[in-house]
Design a protein around this nucleic acid. Structure first.
Lengths: 193, 193
DNA sequence: TCGTTTATGTCAGCCATGTTGACTTATTTT
DNA sequence: AAAATAAGTCAACATGGCTGACATAAACGA
C-alpha cells in the first residue's frame, strides 16, 4: 500500500468563504477514546478481508455474497424457515427470493413444507449445498482460528462477548437462540450462551 | 424475531434421486471448533447492526454506505490521497469517483494538490464534512464502548488483537501505518507516521 | 363454514454501488 | 522529449438492496 500523509499540505486555502479544509483541528468530538476509533476501522478491515476469499469462489459458481449468506445459514441451521432467514438477514422477501430461487433451482437448497404448519417452507441444504458451504467456510474458519491464536489464549471469550454485545439489544435473544440451535458439527456439545 | 427449528420435519423426502435434504448429518467438515462457527455468525450480526444506524442518517442526506466509508477515512485521516483511499476501500477508481464527486460537490470534502507532487489530490473534510462524520460516528462509537464494557475489562486488547489478525497479512502493515497516522482527536499527541 | 390472517412466491421497476474497458489531462520521472 | 504516474471521466453492465402490487395455500377465529 501507499504511504499516508506523505505531505500534509500547509498551502493556502484559496477557496472562497465556504469550503476550507480545516486540516488541523480534531476530526471527531473531542474526548473520544482512541481505542474506539481504532476498533471502528479494524472492524471494517477485518470484515473486508473476511469476505474476500469466499467472493472469489462464489464468482466461479456465478454466485455472489447474498448466495453465500443464504447458503451459510441454511447449511448451519437446517430446517430454517423463510421468515427466519428474513429476520436474520434483515432484507426483504423479494431480495431473498431472488437468490434463494437460484440456490433451489441449481440444487443447493431444497424446501419442504412444515409438518405442523404446511404453509412454512423449511430449508435444507442438499449434498451439493453442503459441499459448497464447506468450501466457502474453509478459508473463513481458518482465518478466524489463526486470528484467535495470534490474539492469545483468553481472546476467544472476550471476542465472543464483544461481538455478541455489538448486536442490537433487541436481536440478542434471537441470536442466542440461533447459536444454540445448531446442528452438531462433530458431536461437540452445545451449551446455551 | 421468530423461532427457529419450530419443527424439524422428518417427513418423507419425496423428491426423486437428486435433491434429498440430508437434514441430520453434520453441516460442515467434522471437527470444526464450535467457537469458530459461532464467531463467524457473530461477526455477521455485529457488522450488520454496526452499520444500520448510520444508514438511517445517511438516507436523510441522500447518501449511502459508500459515502460513509469515504467520509470516515477522509475525516479521520485528513490529507489522504485518492490512491490511499482506493487501497483502503479496495474498490475501483470509478466506483470511488462516483461517491467522492458527490461529497466534493456538496461541500463535505475538499481536494488540494499535493505540495511536493502536484498530481496528487489530497483530501480533507470541510466543517460540514466533519460535522456529518461526527454525527455518523456517534452511535457507532457508543455501541463499541458499551460492547467493550459488557465484555469486561481486558476485552479491548483481545478484540483489537483479534481484529488486527483478521486482516489479510499482506495488508497489516498498511493498516498499522494508517492507525498510527491519525489526527489527534482531543489534543493528544501525533507521532509521525 | 366463511372470512381473515399468515407464510410464501412473484412481477415490475427503481436505486446504490460494485465491475471492465477505453480514454484524457496534468505532472513527474527518466 | 518520451514514458510513467495520479487522477478524472464516459459508457455499459451486474449484483443486490428497495417499494408496491398482487396471487396462492394453509391456518385460524368467529
Amino acid at each position: 500500500m501507499a504511504d499516508i500523509n506523505d505531505q500534509i499540505s500547509s498551502a493556502e486555502p484559496k477557496k472562497g468563504g465556504e469550503n476550507r479544509p480545516d486540516s488541523r483541528s480534531p476530526a471527531a468530538p473531542p474526548g473520544v477514546e482512541p481505542i474506539l476509533l481504532e476498533l471502528t476501522e479494524l472492524l471494517f478491515f477485518a470484515y473486508r478481508d473476511f469476505i474476500c476469499e469466499p467472493d472469489a469462489i462464489l464468482a466461479e459458481f456465478g454466485f455472489g455474497r447474498a448466495h453465500h449468506r443464504v447458503l451459510h445459514f441454511v447449511n448451519r441451521h437446517p430446517g430454517l424457515r423463510v421468515a427466519d432467514l428474513l429476520d436474520i438477514l434483515k432484507i426483504t422477501k423479494q431480495s431473498l427470493g431472488r437468490v434463494l430461487k437460484q440456490l433451489v433451482d441449481e440444487g443447493y437448497i431444497v424446501q419442504r413444507a412444515g409438518k405442523e404448519d404446511r404453509r412454512e417452507r423449511l430449508l435444507y441444504p442438499t449434498e451439493r449445498g453442503k459441499t459448497l458451504a464447506a468450501q466457502l467456510a474453509r478459508s473463513q474458519l481458518h482465518r478466524i482460528a489463526e486470528a484467535l491464536e495470534d490474539a492469545g489464549a483468553g481472546a476467544s471469550q472476550s471476542v465472543r462477548d464483544f461481538l455478541y454485545h455489538m448486536v442490537a439489544p433487541e436481536d440478542r435473544a434471537s441470536v442466542t437462540h440461533l447459536l444454540a440451535s445448531v446442528t452438531p458439527q462433530s458431536g461437540g456439545d452445545r451449551s446455551g450462551s
